[in-house]
Every structure is written in structure tokens, then in C-alpha cells.
Design a protein around this nucleic acid. Structure first.
Length: 274
DNA sequence: CGGCAAACCTGCGAGC
DNA sequence: TGCTCGCAGGTTTGCC
């Protein structure tokens, strides 16, 4: 489910939690990608939820005890917010947080590739998974020049580079294909072969595609829903993703596998230069 | 160091 | 109907 637009949509759905006070936290599944820190259940009643923000695909919830909860949704994770009375536990509900406003935040994750971390706020920003992140995909500091400087020695293909969170944070497998199509750049192009002009195109397409997806409430594949249960609808706007064999502007979309991940592109409209 | 396959999990659809 | 296989929105690990 979760690339930047879906995480951003999730964050917006969590806004009603801001300013509320935690009543309790329960862990139903101790180990996701790694163990949920046990001391998270010791959060005292009355600790306030101060801020909820996104960094790359990470959700950071800052508390009034100077600790933060970090949530990564992995491949199949999702957060939903219930009125306590309307909650019915379902399979793969691993974690819950109850507030004084009768809200119940539930973390559900079929594949358990997601994780939950809990530590002092000033330690979170030094965690490897945060420190190593590259520039935010939507940040104005992300420019073609920056991208080119990061990839000018890379012998891997640009599709793989777009997924590299240490260069640009937030792009995932779906939007990588969509971005490349929008920029009319072949996913097979090698990083070192991309001109600054092409890097500019990529950066512009990245921002355009991700922003459009956010505006559409993210994408819904399988059963992903946002925190309030509403379906995102950007998947209806995919030009190439999941459209192998179909035509776009009269040209056939091809599915290939790169570095173990599916890539969809249009060879006629995304011509490789070298 | 860089690149790449495999690993971590469950569920679903296709094909036999 | 039921089995096996391949694949799924992400990231880390370990090997070369």
C-alpha cells in the first residue's frame, strides 16, 4: 500500500489525534519487522499527542513526554482510526492506541514488514533509518542538479535509483513507473548516462505525480483504505502500472522485471538514449 | 564500496 | 475442488 502519497493520506487521517491524551497502548503482536519496544506500553495515561509528521515513508508521532512513536507501514501495513464503540478486531490487528476522545488507532499489517519504534525524540532523528534518508521527494531542495550529482557514477538503472530512499525519500514501486512514464524516460537508462536536463524532467515528474496522487487520496490496491475507511482513487489514474499489454496513446505498455521488482513502461514513448 | 539476490511474511489469483 | 506457483505497495542482510 504505502508510498509517499498513501503515507501522506494516512497522516492527514490521523489529525484528529493531535492534542488528545493517551489512555493506553496495547501490543497484540510483539514482533513485526522487529520487536516493538516493550516500554511503549508503559506510556503514562495523560501523555499528550503533540505532532504527527511524515519523513519519507515514516510516520513520526511526537508525544509530550519527549518520546516519539515511529511507524513504517511496510508493504501491507495500514493505520485506521475508530470510535472505540465501532471497533471490531480483525485478523492482523497488531497494535492499538486509545485516547481520551474515545478514539482507537489500530495498526494492521498482513505481511508484518512494517514496524513500530519508540524512543526519545532526540534519538529518533539519529536512527539509521532516518539519518540515511535522502531529500524529501516533494521538497523544493530536490532539484535535477541534486539528483544528477547523486547518480552520475551509478551503474544501476534509473528505475532502481528512484526506489533508493537514500537519494530521494518517498518514491515506491508504483510511482517509480508512473514518474518515468510521465518524464518520458526509459526505466532501463543507467544513472550515469542521465543528463541534468533529464534529471530535471524526472524531478518535475516526481513532484507532479506524487502531488496528484495525494490530491486523489492515494492509491488503493487490494483492500487498502485510508484511516477513515475511504478508498483512495489514484489507481484509476495509473497510466502504465499494472497495465502490461494494454495501450496508452496507441502504444503498448510492457511489463519487465528489474532488480526483482515489476516495472511497467512504454518502450515507444520512453526511448533509451544509450 | 557497489550491486544484486535472498530473506522477512501472508494471501490471492492463475493454471493445472 | 484443491494443489502449487508466482506475485504483491518495502527494506535489510549477506555475499561476491
Amino acid at each position: 500500500m504505502p508510498e509517499l502519497p498513501e503515507v501522506e493520506t494516512t497522516i492527514k487521517g490521523l489529525e484528529p489525534l493531535i492534542g488528545t491524551f493517551i489512555i493506553n497502548i496495547k501490543i497484540h503482536t510483539p514482533k513485526l519487522r522487529f520487536l516493538i519496544p516493550k516500554n511503549i506500553i508503559n506510556i503514562k495515561r495523560g501523555i499528550k499527542i503533540k505532532k504527527i509528521e511524515r519523513r519519507g515513508k515514516f510516520i513520526i508521532i511526537s508525544l509530550s513526554n519527549d518520546y516519539s512513536i515511529v511507524i513504517h507501514l511496510g508493504m501491507s501495513g495500514r493505520l485506521r482510526l475508530f470510535n472505540i464503540k465501532k471497533y471490531n478486531k480483525i485478523k492482523h490487528d497488531h497494535f492499538s492506541l486509545k485516547t481520551n476522545k474515545k478514539q482507537l488507532l489500530i495498526f494492521n499489517d498482513v505481511r508484518r514488514f512494517g514496524f513500530i519504534d519508540y524512543d526519545k525524540s532526540n534519538k529518533i532523528c539519529n536512527k539509521k533509518y532516518i539519518v540515511n534518508l535522502g531529500l524529501e521527494a516533494l521538497d523544493c531542495s530536490l532539484t535535477g542538479k541534486y539528483l544528477q550529482s547523486k547518480i552520475c557514477n551509478k551503474t544501476v538503472q534509473i528505475k532502481q535509483i528512484l526506489l533508493d530512499q537514500t537519494i530521494i525519500a518517498g518514491i515506491g514501486n508504483i510511482y517509480a513507473s508512473e514518474i518515468l512514464f510521465n518524464a518520458k524516460i526509459s526505466p532501463l537508462e543507467f544513472g550515469k548516462d542521465l543528463s541534468v536536463a533529464n534529471c530535471n524532467k524526472l524531478v518535475i515528474s516526481t513532484k507532479k505525480i506524487l502531488q496528484r496522487a495525494i490530491n486523489a487520496g492515494g492509491s488503493t490496491l487490494k483492500d487498502y483504505v485510508s484511516t477513515d475507511g475511504i478508498l483512495g482513487n489514484f489507481q484509476n489514474k495509473f497510466k502504465v502500472y499494472n497495465r502490461g499489454g494494454q495501450k496508452i496513446n496507441g502504444r503498448i505498455v510492457k511489463k519487465i522485471v528489474q532488480y526483482g521488482r515489476s516495472t511497467y513502461y512504454c518502450p515507444k514513448l520512453q526511448i533509451k538514449n544509450k
